[in-house]
Design a protein around this nucleic acid. Structure first.
Lengths: 344, 344
DNA sequence: TAGAGGCTGGACAACGTTGTCAGATCGCGA
DNA sequence: TCGCGATCTGACAACGTTGTCCAGCCTCTA
């Protein structure tokens, strides 16, 4: 064949290996390995020769082979919902920092809230033999991870608990936070309060709805089903639902928004509404202080950090039953939640 | 030793291998490989037996070994500045989507703007033999990547060009965008305009400053050095610098902010200022529409997508000299940039 | 019935590294 | 000068997978 440019084989552009370095330095393979890994027992002169050969060839150790031999990848996987969601940026970053402190790298992927994709991603990470896995569940059945966990993949769930298996989890107090937020609205005189939430199939969505109902019940207030909007966080649908609540015969006078994206949409929708409507949102948002949006803030970075630390403790051999850690939330009163109902 | 709990060896909790599957199914090793990889030449009956064995043992292929053998990892690396920065979330997500479409996973890490950390991270990714690398530079000398690129690691730089080496790059038009933004302020009557920017050592920072100077010069306006604040994006320092510009004997009447973080700080600082000050910021920000902040928007997702697509084209064998792609920016007039100077 | 040809299955080497272990070398004292 | 440690070095196997290649079997035809 006249196929001259064709590579002789399939490999990484023919990178030099330890064998090549050894040949060039005139030493044995293992000696190169020793130098590369800083093991003792190499004369300074030999070491220098090896370093020169490494330099000259541009050698870099192939960690794939190393992993195969050693059994640990020093890599952890993070399956989250959407890296573009501002809630997950700090969370992911916090995980990364902890990983870095433990000398590990982070592989991450977004599930886009699709359970199949979460599973596909988590299993792909397991196939790469990540040492541990941090998962923000999209689905509610994680039995598919059982063989992996049994095989030694440390696994911690964040933001939402695992479904159908018993595993470590680090959560925010969705129920308590929502209850507090709605109680805050009630304390400011509201009696008809709308809840705009996530899919109730998602744990956090369900918990926040439960918190809403609990606060209403605590105050002896009725809840009408038309005050509750669940389902997608699609802006158009959310916006339409909000408008409907506001123009009903007996309109709501305040809204509780179930997560950051819903809150943003709600703020946009309310901005176009003639009269002020009270609003409390779950999750803090950048610039919310300037817009005067009252929120129930959760600490995304703390969630990530806590989960990662637990993961590495498990990797370091910590035993014991799976635990669930719940982190508290903070109500930040900034104006929108303190608007009184119209004195109609 | 009475060390009963000790693992017999170092490996992944003794996961089953293809060999184990083969033994259990009563077939040869290679047959299992064929079934796992969907290769032809296996009778349905044999295939069924193999699948049963896989199921029963909870076998999952070890991709580390696979990678070692095949030479491709189907993984790309992304070195960015800070995953928690809302600018990088969508960028990272876009890269991930493209990678996914090509069946690859994404490993990412934050350099925290430290050149050493960028290098450490990039080389660690190379050691894991990522097929390609997307880098948002923190440093300005990337010669350390030369051996890697020569060895076949496709590399694309994003947001800022590579330093001291010739490589593909996908950038936003920082110069043009800044020039347009400042010209916009000038068109609204401002003559004393402050520039609050990034470290000028960073390419984007320098380019935006250059755009500012060009716009001023185009209009025949002088630039005083005390109108320019460079250096860290640390909120306190930025805030102090802004206050200084506003309270000088001849105060600026408008500000151009060099990036999203600076814009946020500027907005906060200006909110506490007695009289309105015009502001245009580089980078769009969530909720900026509601706050009426005029910005020069760049499309972070498009940057990431374009870079990733180029990377995979290189991986698919596209040759040719390194190219630089520059994406345009968009001025979004929302109010803050259209404030007229005080008629003093 | 025998041979050709197609299909299935398995033995073996190789990927690049590290752990084990034994051999080589050196310095020093007797 | 020889022997003995101590120190340094290298041969070899193994990690779990895939590519190559050959053997066996089955079917179909002459």
């Amino acid at each position: 064949m006249a196929d001259i440019a064709r590579r002789t084989d399939h490999r990484y552009g023919n990178r030099p290996t330890m064998k090549d370095v050894a040949a060039r330095a005139g030493v044995g393979l293992k000696t190169v390995s020793r130098v590369v890994n800083g093991e003792p027992g190499v004369t300074p002169d030999t070491e220098r020769r090896v370093h020169e050969a490494i330099e000259a060839l541009g050698f870099r150790r192939n960690d794939s082979a190393r992993v195969l031999r050693k059994g640990r990848t020093a890599t952890i996987g993070l399956v989250l919902e959407d890296l573009a969601d501002p809630f997950y940026g700090p969370l992911s970053r916090a995980v990364e920092e902890v990983a870095r402190a433990h000398g590990a790298l982070l592989i991450n992927g977004s599930s886009a809230e699709e359970p199949e994709r979460e599973q596909e991603l988590a299993l792909a990470l397991c196939a790469r033999r990540v040492d541990g896995l941090i998962v923000i569940p999209a689905g509610d059945d994680h039995r598919y991870l059982e063989p992996e966990i049994r095989a030694g993949v440390a696994t911690v769930f964040v933001d939402r608990p695992a479904g159908r298996i018993d595993a470590d989890a680090v959560l925010s107090d969705s129920f308590g936070g929502a209850r507090e937020g709605v109680a805050h609205l009630i304390a400011h005189g509201h009696r008809r309060i709308g809840f705009v939430g996530d899919r109730p199939r998602i744990h956090t969505g369900a918990e926040r709805l439960r918190g809403y109902r609990a606060a209403m019940e605590d105050a002896g207030l009725p809840v009408r089903e038309e005050w509750i909007s669940l389902g997608s966080t699609n802006p158009e649908r959310v916006s339409a639902a909000v408008r409907e609540m506001l123009t009903a015969p007996e309109p709501v006078t305040a809204l509780f928004a179930g997560n950051n994206r819903v809150t943003v949409t709600a703020v946009r929708t309310l901005a176009a509404h003639p009269s002020p409507v009270a609003l409390v949102g779950f999750d803090d948002i950048e610039l919310a202080d300037l817009l005067g949006i009252t929120v129930i803030a959760q600490d995304a970075a703390a969630l990530g950090r806590t989960a990662a630390e637990r993961l590495f403790r498990r990797l370091d051999g910590a035993g014991g039953a799976p635990e669930r850690v719940v982190l508290g939330t903070t109500l930040l009163a900034r104006g929108s939640g303190e608007i009184a109902p119209p004195t109609a």
